[in-house]
Amino acid sequence: MLDTETMRTFIKVVESNSFSKAAKLLYKTPAAISYRIKSLEADLNTQLFERTTRTVTLTLAGQHLYEQCSQWLLWLSTMPEELQQIRDGVERKINITINNLLYDVEAVTDLLTFLTEKFPFTTFNINRQVYMGVWDSLLHGECHLAIGATGTESLDTMINILPLGEVSWVFVAAKHHPITQIDGALSNDILRKYPAINVEDTSVHMNKRVAWLLPSQSEIIVPNINTKLACHLKGLGIGFLPKSICQSYLESGELIACKVVNERKPSPLSLAWKKSHMGKVMNEIVNLFKFHHPIANNFLKNIDKRR
Rank of each mutant, 00 (worst) to 15 (best):
L58S: 09
V56S: 00
L73Q: 04
T53C: 00
S77Q: 13
L40K: 01
C69Y: 12
S70D: 02
G89K: 01
Y27D: 15
L83A: 01
T53K: 07
G89L: 07
Q85P: 13
E50D: 13
P80M: 04
Q47H: 09
L44I: 05
E82M: 15
Q47T: 14
E82C: 14
H64P: 06
L25Q: 15
I37N: 04
L74R: 07
T52P: 05
E41D: 02
K38Q: 04
I86R: 09
Q71W: 05
Q63K: 13
R92M: 08
N45F: 00
L65I: 04
K28Q: 07
R54M: 15
Q84N: 11
G62M: 10
L58Q: 07
E81Q: 02
T57W: 11
P30Q: 13
L83W: 00
L83D: 00
L74T: 06
S39N: 14
P80T: 12
L60D: 12
T29Q: 10
E82D: 14
L83N: 00
N45D: 01
L48Y: 04
R54A: 14
M79C: 15
T29A: 11
R54S: 12
L26C: 10
Q47E: 02
T55Q: 02
E50Q: 12
D88A: 13
L65N: 00
T55Y: 08
W75Q: 03
R92L: 12
T46E: 13
A31V: 10
L44F: 02
Q84Y: 07
T53Y: 01
Q68C: 06
Q47F: 10
E41M: 06
T55L: 02
F49Q: 05
R51D: 02
H64I: 15
V56G: 00
V90S: 04
I86M: 03
P80W: 00
Q68R: 06
S70P: 11
E41V: 10
L74K: 14
S70L: 13
L40I: 03
Q84T: 05
A31E: 11
Q63I: 03
E91A: 10
L58I: 05
S77L: 06
Y35R: 14
I33V: 00
V90I: 15
M79R: 13
A42Q: 06
A31H: 08
C69A: 12
D88N: 15
L25E: 08
L44P: 05
Y66M: 01
S70M: 02
K28E: 01
L58N: 12
F49P: 15
A61W: 06
K28S: 02
K38W: 07
T29Y: 05
L58P: 15
W72K: 14
L40E: 00
K38D: 04
S34D: 01
